[in-house]
Design a protein around this nucleic acid. Structure first.
Lengths: 138, 138
DNA sequence: GTAACTGCAAAATATTTGCATCCTT
DNA sequence: AAGGATGCAAATATTTTGCAGTTAC
């Protein structure tokens, strides 16, 4: 059991339970984003589907993970960077979706550029998704 | 009945039917993006749910509409600009999602900036979504 | 007239809710 | 011990599929 996992959960006033540790571990060790289905598969079908839903839900609320935009109808989640706090996310890097393997990668070093909006629009958050071929499918 | 609607359908080798005309009309008159649910509501519940699914599906295939990324789990569609052709979309403007009214607006004049990707990644398409307060909710 | 489109029924999936039980604190 | 988390069952919601009847061309 990783100390880091323990810490993250406690910092967010969450009980440290098996499913939460396991799911959080998954996020920590996977570079990219996970869909609900990925989690069910990769945890080895150990948890109830409902538990996964509820765990993702509460991680989202606590700001441990955020969901990233996708064009298909899948919902994907990724770990927030350290400075995310409850209800206030700062995940300003670009996400890359591979059209071959359909994995989503966080390009942590590529910041989302800011754009000039028409008058009347006030931005709160920007997200950017680039589709293409990732380095593993090259 | 609008000539434009007729033209768009014929140009894409689609039969001109009531539901297609109506749904296409909805897209033409709404500035922003529509979710499946919006379409069911705004057409006045006239069409079968399945027809809406199938119509969106074929519009998507033909390149009449494209889907835009969202962070919540909704799937939204917007009209393609004129130069979209089958399987090859050029919809390079930014989309704006209002966190108050939750409408999605196409910012046709704001292009998606290009970013430099890490080595190994080849981009095919970029999409950008800005969340905030739109000019109507100001 | 023929091929394509629609609507209905139903299947397959996905998500949410309630509640009794179990586990963390 | 108490409150929260889990798992099961079941209620909802969403999307897909098959097929017979209807419509556009």
């Amino acid at each position: 059991m990783d100390v880091q996992i323990d810490l993250i959960l406690k910092r967010n006033q969450l009980s440290v339970t098996g499913s939460r540790m396991k799911i959080l571990e998954l996020f920590l060790e996977s570079k990219g984003a996970l869909a609900h289905g990925d989690i069910e598969k990769r945890t080895g079908e150990k948890f109830d589907r409902v538990t996964v839903y509820r765990t993702l839900q509460i991680f989202l609320e606590k700001g441990i993970i955020h969901n990233i935009p996708t064009s298909d109808n899948s919902v994907r989640y990724a770990l927030c960077t350290n400075d995310c706090s409850e209800g206030h996310h700062h995940d300003n890097h670009v996400h890359f979706v591979c059209s071959a393997c359909s994995n989503t990668t966080c390009l942590a070093d590529v910041m989302v550029p800011s754009v000039k909006l028409p008058v009347g629009f006030s931005p709160e958050e920007s997200q950017m998704v680039v589709t293409g071929i990732c380095k593993d499918c090259k």
